[in-house]
Design a protein around this nucleic acid. Structure first.
Lengths: 188, 188
DNA sequence: TGTAATTCTTGATCGAGATCAAGGATTGAC
DNA sequence: GTCAATCCTTGATCTCGATCAAGAATTACA
């Protein structure tokens, strides 16, 4: 709980009162082993999670293939966003890539807090803006034609991913095969 | 102004008082001819625009190629989002694809209104959530391997685009050449 | 309306990345 | 710590979409 509290107050500049209100509800701890599902396809995502430790992958089955669309790692938030927002069954599934520990807040609690505390909504708005900017970056990554350039962009933007995540997932995330990633990682 | 007012009140459910406050500031009309720039690369995006009529393209130069990353059409909002949010020079440029008429609100006015009216911030938060969901859809579109499937997804999600926008732009948007788009539009 | 510019289509060729395959290196589970 | 499973690498081949080209259709604008 410490890390989240610090994250809210220092990183996100949320005042004490609001941080306290948020933290009261943010306490549904969950432990996952490698390959355990946090969220399954078809299931409604009722929680927003904060990752205490470990790494997770967000997957989407596309034309019968498992496609990686994102990762989660310590001290960030994760959920099947469309499902959480829309309260609909999730097209995505989220799986632990190693031993993982999370805490969650329910959608109803979360949205109640947004309505109750304008500063929390303000914070959430800012986080959404950031998330949107991230997605826009990601879109350019995906549109970049050469595999080598795509790798380079990810290396620049998120070098830590290469430490945390097995290459085969990164390859899928970068819209290429593990072979292509391997061949292009050697000599830059 | 009519259309925007109606859009705010009916589509977005914004109460009279807030709609009125927003509209007071939202009045910087602009007319563009085909190929005119709304926003140039390197220029800071200081306005958020509402498109009264016409169509626009959002472009990004990627590996020396002009890449289409989005479109704008009547009764929607448009701007170089990262530049508008971050107050930094824009990597994107926005160009009219035909005669276009817009009205804009300045960033400073807009953010002042967000701070002043929680309901406007609430509305903006909801719009950001929607925009984020749209981007997530778009990501899946881009990850879809077969050109034919990518076309199909866009046809399902935004059939109107095919009426409004010349195919060569759509091809770029769908990460393929005009030739490939043409060849795959004939027999489904 | 007429004409020039642009866009769309169809064909032929080419090449980058996918696929298939197999040996070697890491990793994880007990 | 051991052994099995998983992951990474390297090579050979193949395939789909890009590229190049040229003619037809459409659109823009005076």
């Amino acid at each position: 709980m410490e890390a989240l509290s610090q994250y809210l107050k220092e990183q996100l500049q949320l005042p004490e009162v609001e941080a306290h209100a948020l933290l009261r509800y943010w306490q549904k701890p969950k432990s996952l082993k490698r390959n355990d599902f946090l969220t399954r396809q078809g299931q409604v995502e009722n929680h927003l999670y904060y990752i205490r430790q470990g790494t997770l992958g967000i997957f989407y089955d596309i034309e019968e293939n498992e496609q990686v669309v994102g990762f989660g790692y310590a001290d960030t938030l994760i959920c099947s966003f469309p499902s959480f927002i829309r309260n609909h069954p999730s097209d995505y599934y989220i799986q632990a890539l190693g031993a993982t520990e999370l805490i969650g807040i329910s959608r109803s609690d979360f949205y109640r807090l947004l309505d109750e505390y304008p500063r929390i909504e303000h914070l959430w708005r800012q986080m959404l803006e950031e998330a949107l900017l991230g997605r826009i970056e990601r879109e350019i990554d995906l549109l970049t034609i050469s595999p080598r350039e795509r790798i380079q962009r990810l290396l620049n933007r998120s070098p830590h991913i290469f430490q945390l995540i097995p290459n085969k997932y990164i390859a899928s995330y970068l819209r290429m095969t593990p072979e292509t990633l391997s061949r292009n990682m050697r000599q830059p």
